[in-house]
Design a binder for these strands. Structure first.
Length: 852
RNA sequence: GCCCCCUUGAUGGAAUUGGUAGACAUACAAGACUUAAAAUCUUGAGCCUUCCAGGCGUGCCGGUUCGAGUCCGGCAGGGGGCACCA
């Protein structure tokens, strides 16, 4: 009976040794190629969850592999430490947000350390630390000076529960992303970053991000939402001014039958001032707001203002001007022309209010009645004067040119992307470093007065912003004129904090936002790893920030993340007790395939479908428990096995057991072999038995395959190949010629290959093999190309495309060499049934196909 | 509604990118060891027909090809993103 691998003892021992020797400390060295591996830093919510374990395991495999390949690796960790939950905890549990946050960080740091990640902890940062946010404020001042920041009155999304403003992207189905409360519209003065200045660049550069998932690039493309079209100005009858509309279909201009304004349009407001009915209509539109139900089922509503607009190309044609609830103020110009014949919404609207419906595009495949249904496809322009007979695309260009000639409009491009609203009326965030002065206006806080620190003595009893309630904090002297002034009490959206932390890691203690030498050496991030849920916002904001930092002279590059990998989520079944309460997986017992009971009561449990682990459904497994029971290496190996990393992973106890068994087995095979291996530096024996030679070749094939699969993020395949090698080595007859030497080679290789995946076991086995060096500092094994190709190859023999047998042939054997052997196989002859050979196809080293 | 992706044994998945489908694991079954259990080891298995052997098989229908899980067209189911974006 063999002993057992004591993972508890081993894991602590190696973690301690790595730390004592500082082996993962990153030191810039221009003589060496660098590799920056980064995983998305966690929010310190209290404990790490399985999503973190998966994320950080993936990143750590990359980091350790790259280190072994000779790169100077930067692999840091920090905390996305500002945010609302800390304030909620302060209110609910009477703990100061800072204490709550730093306590959580301490707990989670401990948990991460137990995972054995090869992190440089000396670079740890927390965004809530003044050392970090002071530099963020400095960046803001630079952006402000460079014209990348502006303040404007805007309708904002107001969350009545959290008492704060939300960015558009934080409103999901008309509800606040955290509180879930219906969002209201409110007009407030707010801070914005001019991300729209870079819309074209952010879109265009997506094509250069070749190591990003296609899916993420597409999502960003859609989010930026470039659309080409034209502005068209419609003179108003009886007035001097014009209504400017945006359209992507200028080719349908002759089909226009009305102009519609947004309820929030300037002209609407002006008309409503004199028309109480219109004012009531506008109020109704605004109150319908953005609730989920309203958006989904909102009926098209309109109000005829009585005004007429003159068609810019058709003399004498006048169309009515309506106000319509489906026209958005913040897209295009907040006004449209309606062409009901060729747009679904306009069609719905025109049908409801009895407006004209004209056909100006003829469908290629015949007549279609546009009064019943709009036609939106390509076709030939009709009833449109000089455009008649043209196709849609040509007509667009031609109308654009004509409008420009007449001064009635011009071709243009509009974007879905809006400027980034960054102010939040919250305490636990980075203060926006400006002062409002009665005489000087908005005054930036001078850099030598940074950081603008958050006050410690705050009170969360009142709703709203504690900074605003604070008795003294906001009262300061104007930095410009010295008169009494008021500090800005808004803090930054926490997405600002995470938009540059990757750059800060290069020089985390610098008294500038970034140290030029450090950032030039380490940036960009060679491999970024994180959840696909950040595919749009965080990544887009970071791309913008990097451009803004370039404009303000902090960095020399545009794109922060050269390589991106988005991992799948960790899923688990959910369980509901007989009385409808969610149960944790450890509160249930599986009695049979289809019988699950609650351990405490013995009553049956309803098993829900597999879905993402979430606290609310209690379908979570605590990483700490798994590490206690099985060890960090088991947790890591399980995360890497079976499921491709980009797909969702089903958590299963059986899978964990499987990983644990493999770890135990490797330990037995290497640390307690029944028959000893050859000595560490023994020379290759002159003769290898055939099976031994095959194993020798397999070792090298496995090196090649695992290397390739690690680079391609196919970690599940790499694990499978390692297991195959372990199987092959285990099956070797230890007494065969050369077996002891090949087993030594094989297990040394095996240990090196699994090192990045199960680093503690790796070190333990490396030592057991007689080495005094650290495995994590050993170079990656090299495959001998000569051993990757076999001398004899098994060829498949097909008859008419169906497999009928196999033959052994020398490598690169040609048709003449294999022909007779293939035709001689009895099953092949049977399949040919005496029919004459028509054609013989030989694909070298692969297949022979006999066509009869 | 628009855009994108996916679909392979009981389960997770593999398949050198058009060349022996099901590697590797999980679950299962049988056996060995054990007083017993755990652990470990051995063996089995895509489905169908009784065996030798053969037939069928990568969501469904069709196509290209000597040869299709892989390429093309259509359909169905599942997932994701955006959503009154003019």
């Amino acid at each position: 009976m063999s002993g057992r691998y004591n993972f508890r003892e081993s894991e602590t021992k190696w973690q301690q040794l790595w730390e004592d020797r500082g082996v993962f400390r990153a030191v810039a060295d221009k003589a060496r190629p660098k590799y920056y591996v980064l995983e998305m830093f966690p929010y310190p919510s209290g404990r790490i969850h399985m999503g973190h374990v998966r994320n950080y395991t993936l990143g750590d495999v990359v980091a350790r592999h790259r280190r072994a390949l000779g790169f100077n690796v930067l692999h840091p960790m920090g905390w996305d430490a500002f945010g609302l939950p800390a304030e909620n905890a302060a209110r609910d549990q009477k703990i100061h947000p800072a204490k709550w946050t730093y306590d959580n960080i301490a707990t989670m740091r401990g948990e991460l350390k137990r995972m054995g990640l090869s992190l440089d902890w000396t670079r740890e940062i927390a965004t809530c630390h003044p050392g970090y946010y002071a530099q963020q404020q400095a960046l803001f001042l630079d952006f402000f000076a460079a014209g990348l920041v502006h303040r404007k009155e805007a309708f904002v999304n107001w969350d009545p529960v959290d008492q704060t403003v939300l960015a558009n992207e934080q409103v999901i189905d008309g509800k606040g992303w955290r509180s879930g409360a219906p969002v209201e519209k409110k007009k407030l003065s707010q801070w914005f970053f001019k991300i729209t200045d870079y819309a074209d660049d952010l879109l265009g550069a997506l094509s250069t991000l070749t190591r990003w998932p296609e899916k993420v690039r597409l999502m960003q493309d859609n989010w930026i939402g470039k659309s080409s079209g034209a502005f068209v100005r419609w003179p108003l009858v009886g007035r001097e001014d014009k209504v400017e509309v945006f359209t992507t279909r200028p080719d349908t201009l002759y089909g226009a039958s009305f102009v519609a304004l947004s309820p929030d349009h300037r002209l609407t407001a002006e008309l409503a001032a004199k028309d109480p009915n219109l004012a009531a209509f506008v109020a109704k539109c605004q109150s319908m707001g953005t609730s989920a139900v309203a958006i989904e089922q909102q009926e098209k509503l309109g109000y005829d203002t009585g005004l007429k607009a003159k068609h810019p190309l058709v003399p004498g044609l006048e169309v009515p001007v309506w106000v319509a609830n489906f026209v958005l103020m913040d897209y295009g110009t907040g006004a449209i022309f309606g062409c009901p014949g060729h747009d679904q919404r306009d069609h719905d609207f025109a049908s409801k209010y009895g407006l004209a419906i004209k056909c100006v595009v003829a469908a290629p495949d015949g007549a279609l009645d546009v009064t019943k249904e709009p036609y939106v496809g390509p076709g030939t322009i009709v009833n449109s004067d000089f455009l008649d007979g043209l196709d849609v695309e040509t007509a667009k260009t031609k109308v654009g040119a004509r409008l420009k000639e007449l001064g009635a409009g011009e071709p243009t491009t509009v974007w879905r992307l809006r400027d980034w609203l960054v102010s939040r009326q919250r305490y636990w965030g980075c203060p926006i470093p400006v002062v409002h002065c009665g005489s000087c206006g908005v005054v930036p806080v001078p850099k030598d007065q940074l950081p603008v620190k958050l006050p410690d003595d705050v009170n969360f009893d009142k709703p709203g912003n504690p900074l605003d309630h604070h008795p003294t904090w906001k009262h300061v002297a104007c930095p410009s004129c010295g008169k009494p002034a008021r500090r800005e009490t808004d803090t930054f959206d926490t997405f600002v904090d995470s938009s540059w932390y990757f750059a800060r890691f290069c020089s985390p203690r610098s008294d500038k936002p970034v140290d030029a030498d450090a950032v030039d050496y380490w940036m960009g991030v060679d491999q970024y790893v994180g959840g696909v849920e950040h595919a749009i916002l965080h990544l887009l904001y970071s791309r913008f920030f990097t451009r803004a930092m370039r404009k303000t002279g902090h960095v020399k590059l545009d794109e922060p993340f050269a390589g991106l990998f988005t991992q799948g989520m960790v899923c688990h079944e959910s369980y509901k007790s007989a009385d409808g309460k969610w149960l944790y997986p450890e509160e249930i017992e599986r009695k049979a395939e289809d019988l699950v009971i609650e351990t405490a009561t013995g009553k049956p449990v309803t098993v829900g479908r597999r879905e993402v682990m979430s606290k609310s459904k209690k379908n979570v497994v605590a990483p700490a428990r798994i590490i206690d029971e099985y060890g960090a290496d088991t947790a890591r190996l399980f995360m890497l096995s079976d499921s491709p990393p980009e797909r969702d992973l089903e958590w299963s106890e059986a899978g964990v057991d499987g990983a644990f068994r493999f770890i135990q087995r490797m330990w037995r095979d290497v640390a307690e072999p029944a028959v000893p291996f050859a000595a560490k530096d023994a020379a290759k024996p002159a003769a290898l038995a055939p099976a031994v030679d095959a194993a020798w070749r397999q070792i090298h094939k496995t090196i090649a395959a695992v290397s390739e699969n690690l680079e391609g993020f196919r970690f599940n395949v790499a694990v499978a190949q390692v297991r195959s090698l372990a199987n092959a080595l285990g099956e070797l007859d230890p007494n065969a010629a050369g077996a002891d030497w090949v087993r030594r080679q094989g297990y040394e290789t095996l240990v090196k290959l699994v090192g990045p995946m199960v680093p503690h076991l790796g070190e333990e086995l490396w030592a057991a093999l007689g080495h005094t060096t650290l495995l994590c500092q050993e170079p990656w094994p090299k495959a001998d190309p000569a051993l990757l190709v076999d001398e004899t190859i098994t060829l498949a023999v097909q008859v008419n495309g169906k497999l009928r047998g196999t033959i052994e042939a020398k490598r690169d054997a040609g048709e003449n060499d294999v022909r007779d052997a293939a035709l001689a196989i009895p099953t092949v002859q049977a399949a040919m049934a005496g029919k004459p050979l028509r054609k013989l196809i030989v694909v070298k080293n692969k297949i022979v196909n006999i066509v009869v």
